[in-house]
Structure formats: structure tokens, C-alpha cells
Nucleic acid binder design. Structure first.
Lengths: 233, 233
DNA sequence: CCGGATAAGTGATTAGATCACTTGATATGT
DNA sequence: ACATATCAAGTGATCTAATCACTTATCCGG
């Protein structure tokens, strides 16, 4: 049912192109083989190859110049993930992700306390109530409810860009990572801390809301760090 | 020489697809017409349409599910299309984007001051020196050099996730937005402020580095805010 | 030495057919 | 009546091979 979509030919092609660029030691501005040569080398037809090229172009990895050639783009150096779904997260990245959230989410909680509308506050309460309902339910559902709380809090800050950033960070806890992550959930503590954050936001106390969000995320990180070193049976 | 490349059919298609999604009032998760129908409606052949679809997929605007259909992606809301209101949309988005950077980049500068390696510091110096070389050169080149400085500083913080976030924030500006942005560049001031940030990082003073980065971005935002209200002739 | 024609190389697009996958309806068995 | 298995329609993925459009460097005439 929840099978991960099998990689398509074009997916694989995109990766092989990136490999070709990196393994070849190509730098931005370098010219790559022609479409005809590439389609031959990878044993695919022109239209298929072009789909992969367009994806790479959209991410800035390459540049297509009509009549001239294919060139390595400036963004090539920071591209590790051609496709959001083909990313694998390891322990270190998990901690990096938590650190990222520790940087971003506290200021958002503070902004939410300052600018959040009554409707958004009500929504946040609903989300937390839903999480409360799942306190004795399935792990997966509780975990999702908790993530939704963080999303709702981020939305409340009223900055579309930051909201999307948080959204994508939380989405990275995809199906696979979710199973790993929810092992670490401390059901009661998470709920209590979320509640205290909500109260600070409702009180309009920006500094307190920010600090509580920060403390909450640091707590989560601490637990994960410990269990990464001492894996539970 | 520096003519902007004439838009290709596939370019136009990508825009028309965005129009179709927005004008249709589609929300993330909505299903779009099939490839056959789209290729007919736009009067292009399947492979051409697919190139446009792959680009949209790469930016998160849509999602292609084999055997199922084409669906609107979560990122659709931050993707802008050229229309009469574009200027204002860009304005609002621009300020949100700046606010996002004000939240994220200062802590990164502080982290860079604490953990940055000598190699990364050297790289940062090279980037700034390159910007200095362009102080009297082309606007576009100077602008790119300045963006590179921010990228390099973000990388120096040593958090792969946050580095990617900053990278994507700086990349989101498509060609159009870049032209708008670089109008606001204050060549000398930007360079000086970058230099002061670099010095704070080199001194290992995390608090100072963070504060200077914050002040720098607030300066930039202030200029943009003023000119948005008082467009220069 | 310069400037415009030119030819080779390259990306862009076309056309219709076939394969592979998903999904919901139908049929089957218990 | 319900669960499971099967199937068919709809959809995305890929193939095929040729032609069009653009860039670039070369070469020729002035």
C-alpha cells in the first residue's frame, strides 16, 4: 500500500547525469557532451534524456544553450539531492535537522505570539487537542499530530517563506524517517511542552514563546542524541 | 551579446502551466488534466509537454504519479507567474524572504565564527575579494558575488540542512527577481558590511558576527522597503 | 584587416505508437 | 454479506526517427 514509488528511468538518468558531472570533475561553465552523445551513452532516447536535462536545468545544475551546448550550472556544487524523494537521512543529518529547527522555529514562535490572529490561535488549539486525543492511540497518529502542531505554529508567524521552510523540514521526516523518529517520542512530555508553548503564544509573550519552543526542541534533540549512542533494544 | 535568450516553446509552456494552475484556483493535492489532454490543449506534442512538466516537478510545483495522474505540489504557492500584479506580489514575497534570512542567517554567522575551519575562512575571503574586484564592474556580476558571500558564510556554519535552506532561499529568486533585487544593491555599503562580518567571524566572536549579519540584512531590507514605496525613476 | 556569407554542430520539436502502472469496478469465493 | 481476486479503463513513461532552429567558427571577398 504505502510502497515507495519505484524510481523511473528518468529518475535514474538524473542521478547518472549528476554522477557524470561530479566524477568528471566538472566545474561550473564547463561544457558537457551533446544530447546525441549523452542519449547514446546512457542508452535512452532523446525525449527521455531531455526530461532529465530539464529537471537538472530547473534546479540550476546545468544550463541548456540552444545551438551551443549543455553547460554545468553554478548550482552544481550544492546539489546532492536531485529529487526530494530520493534522499536518505542518517544520524548526523538527523541532528543537523534538529539544529536547523532549533535555529528557525523559536523565532517563529515568538512572531506567532506577536502577530498571530485569533483564528490561527484557535486552529493551533484544535491541533493540540487532536494530539491529546491520540495520547493513548497509535504511535504514528500521535507523531503526525505533533508534527502538525509545529506546522501550525510556523504558519501562525505569518511569513510565507519561513512557513514553507519549516514545512519542508518537517516533510523530510518522510515515511521511513517517521518510523525511526517516533521511537523517540516521549508522548506525555511532548504534549506538555506543546501546551506550554501554546500558552505563551496565547499570552502574547514573544520572548517566553520563543524560549519554550527552543527548550522543547533541545529536549527532543537530547533524547535523540542519547539514543543514537545507546540504541534501545 | 548579452541578449537574453529568446524564450523557447518549453519555457512558454512552463509559464502557461503555472497560469492554468493558478487561474484554475487549484490547491496542493488537486489533480490536473492528463498529459494527453494537456498536450492537446496547448497544441504541443507529448515529449515537449513532458519537458515542461519535469521542470515544474523539479521545483515542486507539481507531482507526477505513474498510472494515477498529475497533482499540484505543495510548493505551488511560492511560485510566481508574470502578471499585472507581479510587482506587488514580488514586493511582499521579497520582504518575507528578507525576514526569513534575518531569522536564519545571523545564527549561522555566529556558528561560523565558532566552528569554521581555516580553509572555509580562506574561501570566504576569496569570495569577498572577488566581490571587491567587481565593485566597479557589471551589476549582475557584483550581485552574484555578493550572494556567493552569503552562501559561503552559511556553508561555514557546518550544518548541512541549514546550508541547503539558505542556498534555496537565495536560489528562489528567478531571473526576474534577480533583476529587481540588484537594483537595490548599494555597492559600497554591501561590501563594507560583508567585510565587517568577515572580520567578526575571523576573530571568532560569535555574538558580534551574528549581530553584524543581522544588522546587514536589516539594512538591505530597509532600503528595499523604502524603494518599494517610493519607486525610483 | 574587417565584415558578411556559410557550413558544421547542437539543442528544440514533431508524430504516433507501445509499454508499465494505478485505480476502481466487477466477479468470485467463503 | 464480506473479503479477496481479477480485470479493464485511464494514465504516465518510453521509444522511434526525422526535421526545424539556433550558434559558432571558418572562410572568402572587400
Amino acid at each position: 500500500m504505502s510502497e515507495v514509488a519505484r524510481p523511473t528511468l528518468s529518475d535514474a538518468l538524473t542521478e547518472r547525469m549528476l554522477e557524470l558531472i561530479h566524477a568528471g570533475g566538472h566545474r561550473p561553465g564547463d561544457r558537457l557532451p551533446s544530447t546525441r552523445e549523452l542519449s547514446q551513452r546512457f542508452a535512452v532516447t532523446t525525449p527521455t534524456l531531455r526530461e532529465a536535462l530539464r529537471r537538472l536545468e530547473a534546479t540550476g545544475a546545468i544550463e541548456l544553450r540552444h545551438g551551443s551546448g549543455i553547460y554545468v550550472g553554478a548550482a552544481i556544487e550544492r546539489l546532492v539531492l536531485p529529487n526530494p524523494n530520493m534522499r536518505e537521512m542518517h544520524g548526523a543529518q538527523l541532528l543537523d535537522l534538529l539544529d536547523a529547527r532549533i535555529v528557525i522555529e523559536p523565532p517563529l514562535a515568538a512572531m506567532a505570539a506577536e502577530r498571530g490572529s485569533p483564528e490561527e490561535l484557535a486552529a493551533l488549539k484544535r491541533v493540540l487537542a487532536a494530539a491529546g486525543d491520540h495520547l493513548r492511540g497509535q504511535d504514528a497518529e500521535l507523531h503526525d499530530a505533533n508534527m502538525t502542531f509545529h506546522r501550525a505554529a510556523a504558519r501562525m508567524a505569518g511569513n510565507s517563506v519561513l512557513h514553507e521552510v519549516v514545512d519542508s523540514l518537517l516533510t523530510i521526516h518522510g515515511p521511513e524517517q517517521r518510523q525511526i523518529l517516533q521511537i523517540f517520542d516521549d508522548r506525555r512530555r511532548d504534549y506538555d511542552e506543546h501546551l506550554s508553548i501554546l500558552e505563551a503564544i496565547e499570552a502574547g509573550d514573544a520572548a517566553l514563546a520563543g524560549e519554550r519552543m527552543r527548550a522543547h526542541l533541545v529536549d527532543v534533540k537530547t533524547v535523540i542524541e542519547q539514543r543514537l549512542h545507546n540504541p534501545p533494544k
